[in-house]
């Protein structure tokens, strides 16, 4: 749709700007201020320039936390997006089943994040949890609290359990918005199920999948509460993602300067990632 030039539209955006800027800009500026100083306590601080940035950039632990984060986010995205679309395609389109499916789908999304951690903490235990006991019964020595690979996999399964619904709901909304005429046209052309998906459904899902991809990218990059409850970042550092590492620095050791420098680097990386995705995915739209 053609949009008209209207500078006065700024007035309509102003409330959003005020509300978001209050909570976004002031803390961000404070974090930038932290990142160039050594802070000992209230009122006691020394300017250190870019020292923290230099230190953080040469820190091996940062590199490994960053690699783990990228690996986790990539895995999460590559499972949740296709799975979510598949679920949306399999959902009934009319009748009483729709509501029931939506209720079940939305359920994990409305569970507080620390409780999500608790659910999987219990479910995954080999002694009292159904999931853990089941895997054990298959003859696999599974223990998310001691075996790094198991901990990582448990977190992955938990995230898929938790968030695939979001992708599925968005994709379902996108599918429902495709006019019936498109399908009829495809039928006349004799397109098969795959043809319909490839030529009609997928292109029309572009918008919602952009939202889903960006939301999952952003949210999985700052994942904190669930691993904190489930594994506490362990065993060892196997599930210490960026936020865990940051929290340990900022809250645990009160190393505000390095933690701030770290989070700014992290913020820049995800900003660049999102910018690339956002630009590529919205490139086709009218600007």
């Amino acid at each position: 749709m053609k949009r008209t030039e209207n500078p006065r539209a700024w007035w309509l955006v102003l409330p959003v700007l005020a509300v978001v800027a209050f909570s976004a800009l002031i803390p961000l500026m404070t974090v930038v201020n932290y990142s160039v100083q050594d802070i000992f306590g209230p009122g006691q601080r020394v300017f250190v320039g870019a020292e923290w940035f230099r230190e953080i950039l040469h820190d091996e632990r940062l590199h490994s936390a960053f690699a783990r984060q990228l690996g986790f986010t990539a895995s999460v995205l590559s499972i949740e997006l296709p799975l979510g679309v598949a679920i949306a395609l399999a959902m009934p389109t009319r009748g009483a089943g729709v509501s029931a499916c939506l209720v079940i789908l939305a359920l994990p999304l409305l569970i507080p994040w620390n409780v999500v951690g608790t659910i999987w903490q219990i479910f995954g235990r080999a002694d009292i949890g159904l999931g853990g006991a089941f895997v054990h019964a298959l003859g696999i020595d599974y223990n998310y609290a001691q075996n790094p690979a198991d901990a990582w996999l448990t977190l992955l399964v938990m995230d898929v359990w938790h968030w695939t619904s979001l992708v599925a709901l968005l994709a379902y909304a996108g599918l429902r918005a495709i006019p019936e005429a498109y399908y009829q046209a495809a039928q006349i052309d004799g397109a098969g199920a795959f043809g319909v998906f490839h030529h009609i459904q997928l292109p029309r899902l572009r918008g919602v999948l952009t939202i889903a991809l960006l939301l999952r990218l952003m949210d999985s990059f700052v994942i904190y509460t669930e691993p904190f409850v489930l594994t506490g970042g362990g065993p060892g550092n196997a599930t210490t993602f960026l936020s865990q590492y940051l929290a340990r620095m900022a809250v645990g050791q009160f190393d505000l300067g390095p933690a701030a420098a770290f989070s700014l680097i992290y913020f820049l990386v995800i900003l660049a990632l999102c910018f690339v995705f956002f630009t590529v995915l919205t490139a086709g739209e009218e600007r």
Binding site: T30, V32, N33, Y34, V36, P42, G43, F47
Partner: peptide
């Protein structure tokens, strides 16, 4: 004071 402003920032 909590914002910890410095001249360069």
């Amino acid at each position: 004071e909590w914002m910890a402003w410095t001249l360069p920032t």
